[in-house]
Design a protein around this nucleic acid. Structure first.
Length: 694
DNA sequence: GATCCTCGAGTTCG
DNA sequence: CTCGAGGATC
């Protein structure tokens, strides 16, 4: 978002005009066509910027500004329903300070800060109002613009969690409000189903059906189907969160109201809580921030309401937003920012990888300033240009990713990008194999590649040299002390102390780390050499075949192919590497320096509890590290898998598990938690537990 | 020859 | 985590 506080009035006017037209455009896509082009948080951000500008320059507010409405005009294909009491929106809080400010304002009007508050997860679905007469469901409508919505009664009748008739004593006429949503698992299944239909359609030469981007869009699209039988086939559900209007007496508190509604037969979210004060609310919000991925529905925040409904009238409204409620919004997982330029990174194999240099932006709690763009083809496909406003998200909550440009914000100043003709590190002309996606720097002595090679050599899983990381690798290379990986073993304490920032102790530590690395197992050493196509797995196979480091100098491409898992390409790569004089020299010097790989422990013959099983680990484990878990699997005679496939025996799942867990559920793969996994490894689950074990 | 699976390589932030 | 590509398998 642009810095509004620094804008001149003239800039603000231009920007607000631009934002208004962009937002109106997206409103139309979203509300009328149900085909949003940008994700909700991005839309929210545009709205926030416009609000910020209008807040600072109120004279710029126009009657047609999207901030002056709560939605868009309803679709014409459904009958219009006038809401007897409008469905308004909630104010938002993004920080603790904003939340406290809301609480303080409420406390002033209540005359005390000792009031109870309810919280419930804010489900990302669509708001719906249901009208009941004499205990029967008679009408359901979307929120629309808050005053008038669409009559979608027939479609809502197909949702099983919406009661058609109520039980017990109920008011003559009343309205309830809630959220219609689609579960995450239901959404995955539905999209998978559409995917299968599309394969069939493709065979028949028909156009594919559109996939829904997320559960929210899927829910909205499903409720607004012309044919109720289509809606009936969609996995929709509804939670009621409020009593609208009511002909008759109603409870004096929000939590009692919800209990009352639940007794009538409505589905009420079981996660609703009553809190004595704001401190307790904070705890619940923090908890939700941690746990929200575990829910089977998307939430984008937590809704707070004063529990005492008699206060609601006294507190009233600010504009369109009630003072007695607010929504605490979680930091968005997607944001927009400006893509300043595209630069190129050189990998250890010479692969050139473009990455985006971004205007720093906070996404999901971390400041993102760079993101990989994979390769030139990907940039073309997504039509990403330098200067674009782009949507950034964190894949799997961690790795920043550029989703794509916001086309509607193009100014015409953006520049298309293509791979430079020369390597940015050494200036050598780049090349690309016809069939491959990546460009390479063909210069083996390119400094960037050499540094990456050293980083790889010393990294965890390879020689694992303590005290030698990315930074030190650069320092050594820069000082001419690490011309190749074998040169590391020529280092002396005196050499090191001549370098800036290294004193006696640091030098001694590093020398000790280098010394210790000489005893790494053979697979690690082979992996460390950085031979193309030889990752850790292939290095293990190779180690079993070779038996020693020296044997690498005698390899033969034909022989290598006899090893299961090694084909012609990998064999040629290994043999080619071993043939080159500079590589032979490295191996010889390593051996001379006493790099004496201990042979890999023979794969435990049999009898292990995991014999013949492939195990995949995902999520954050509580009592062991990822590496320890993998060690346990191997020790038990099992194989460590990277991805969940139908060959996977079971999945060990920790906290915040992501796509792997979803995949396992789809495939019906057995899922174990840490506890069960430990039991299995410890002695097999069938084994009889001795009575003494507690 | 097509398809499924596994592996390799590059990836960001704190 | 994601993509691309190599290897195994039918």
């Amino acid at each position: 978002m642009a810095d509004v506080s620094a804008m001149t009035q003239y800039e603000a006017r231009l920007r607000s005009e631009e934002l208004r037209s962009v937002i109106n455009y997206h409103n139309r896509l979203y509300y009328e066509l149900d085909r949003p082009e940008i994700p909700d948080p991005v839309y929210d951000e545009l709205m926030n910027e416009l609000r910020a500008i209008e807040g600072r320059f109120p004279e710029l507010i126009t009657p047609d500004s999207p901030t002056q409405r709560t939605g868009a005009a309803p679709l014409t294909t459904f009958d219009v329903v006038e809401h007897r009491v409008p469905l308004l929106s909630l104010s938002n809080c993004f920080t603790e300070a904003e939340l406290q400010a809301w609480h303080r304002r409420a406390a002033e009007r209540v005359g005390s800060d000792a009031f109870q508050i309810t919280t419930e997860p804010k489900i990302d679905g669509l708001a719906i109002a249901l009208v009941y007469e004499k205990g029967r469901f008679v009408q359901g409508a979307t929120r629309g613009d808050g005053f008038r919505g669409e009559n979608v009664t027939e479609n809502l009748r197909t949702i099983t969690t919406i009661p058609k008739t109520l039980t017990g004593e109920v008011p003559e006429q009343f309205e309830v409000r809630g959220e219609v949503y689609m579960s995450k698992s239901g959404f995955e299944l539905m999209n998978a189903g559409i995917g299968e239909q599309n394969i069939e359609r493709d065979r028949q030469g028909r156009r594919p059906l559109p996939l829904y981007a997320n559960p929210r869009n899927a829910a909205a699209g499903s409720v607004r189907q012309k044919d109720p039988s289509v809606t009936a086939g969609r996995p929709l559900a509804m939670y009621i969160y409020q009593l609208g209007w009511c002909d008759g007496p109603r409870p004096d508190s929000h939590h009692e109201t919800l209990q009352w509604l639940a007794a009538m037969g409505f589905a009420v979210n079981p996660e609703m809580r009553l809190h004595p004060g704001l401190e307790d609310v904070h705890k619940r919000i923090d908890w939700w921030g941690q746990q929200r991925e575990r829910l089977d529905y998307d939430i984008d925040g937590v809704v707070l309401k004063l529990d005492d409904t008699r206060e609601w009238d006294r507190l009233g409204y600010v504009g369109r937003e009630p003072r007695w409620a607010t929504a605490f919004k979680f930091p968005p997982q997607q944001r927009t920012t400006r893509l300043r330029k595209i630069e190129v990174n050189v990998g250890r194999t010479g692969v050139l990888t473009p990455f985006a240099v971004l205007e720093p932006v906070v996404v999901g709690g971390a400041t993102v300033s760079m993101a990989t763009l994979h390769n030139e083809g990907d940039i073309r496909r997504k039509d990403i240009r330098e200067g674009d406003t782009v949507i950034v998200q964190r894949a799997g909550e961690v790795i920043p990713q550029v989703v794509g440009p916001v086309l509607s914000l193009r100014t015409g100043e953006e520049r298309e990008w293509s791979m430079p003709a020369e390597c940015p590190a050494c200036g050598t002309a780049v090349s690309r194999e016809e069939s491959e996606a990546a460009y390479y720097c063909p210069n083996g002595s390119c400094p960037a590649q050499q540094i990456r090679m050293i980083e790889h050599f010393v990294s965890r899983g390879a020689m694992d040299i303590e005290g030698l990381g990315e930074r030190m690798a650069y320092t050594l290379f820069d000082a001419g002390l690490a011309t190749d990986v074998a040169a590391i073993y020529d280092l002396t304490a005196d050499n090191l102390m001549a370098l800036p920032g290294i004193k006696e102790k640091g030098a001694a530590n590093l020398i000790r780390g280098i010394e210790a690395s000489k005893q790494r197992p053979l697979p690690n050493v082979l992996f460390a050499l950085g031979i193309r196509h030889v990752g850790f797995e292939t290095a293990r196979l190779l180690a079993e075949h070779l038996g020693s480091l020296e044997a690498l100098l005698q390899v033969d491409a034909e022989k290598l192919q006899e090893i299961g898992g090694i084909g012609p390409v990998v064999a040629a790569s290994i043999a080619g590497w071993a043939q080159r004089p500079e590589n032979r020299d490295i191996v010889r010097r390593l051996v001379e320096h006493g790099v004496n790989p201990t042979q890999a422990r023979a794969v435990s013959a049999n009898g292990g509890p995991l014999e013949g099983l492939t195990v995949v680990v995902t999520g954050r484990l509580e009592t062991m590290s990822r590496g320890e878990a993998e060690e346990l699997i191997r020790a038990g005679g099992g194989k460590v898998g990277n991805a969940v496939t139908k060959g996977t025996s079971f999945l060990v799942v920790g906290a915040d598990a992501g796509s792997k867990l979803v995949k396992a559920q789809q495939l019906g793969t057995r899922v174990l938690d840490e506890e069960a996994f430990r039991r299995l490894v410890a002695g097999g689950e069938e084994s009889v537990e001795p009575p003494s074990s507690a």
